[in-house]
Amino acid sequence: MFALTPLESEAILLSLRVAFWSMLISLPVAIAVAWLLARKSFYGHALVNGLVHLPLVMPPVVVGYLLLLLLGRNGALGAWLFDWFGITVAFTWRGAAVASAVMAFPLMVRAIRLSLENVDIRLESAARTLGAPPLWVFATVSLPLMLPGILTGAMLAFARGFGEFGATITFVSNIPGETRTLPIALYSLTQVPGGESGALRLLILSVIIAMLALFASEIMARRVRARMEG
């Protein structure tokens, strides 16, 4: 009764893998973009800000189709990736990770940007007067102080990646064992007669996993706070 069927464990492991990699690849980019938006004023600031937020306001299907056009085997970027590196993104689990990363990107940037804006810029100038070059200051002062926001952003991105559906199914379709993540598996079950009980099991599983992720991030955030308050 409680044992997972091979289909279920396959879907869960795939979702976890997609969520983990989408979080990992977007984290450094999100930190860089958040820093750019929070600390630099440049021509086109509003445009970059708008682009970053686009996935949040666009229908996921549109994002997925856009990715297909761009990263598909015949897409501008996709063809280049295949010709030079032999990497195929469309219709693979890597594509699912990319789709999740794009969809989660605005959430991540927002959380990290907020924490960066709360970092006292005067602490950074204090570090400069002590002889530390800007990159060192960022790594040893700004980054540790942003940690709560980075954790929040990473957690949001992970959750978003775990549950991403619209962009994923449009971009990489529904291939068992390759791109059939937990939400797509759930959707498939609701489309066939007699799939209700299987769908319900997946629903309960996803609730449990989401709760676990929340707890884990809360515990980490608490530890970080405790360290700062000494």
Binding site: L130, P144, R227
Partner: peptide, 22 residues
Amino acid sequence: VKPEHRRVGYVFQEGRLFPHLS
């Protein structure tokens, strides 16, 4: 000259200690 190359120490009114460090 950049602040990090001036070798001018600065004690600020509010201390500005790094809160995450001992």
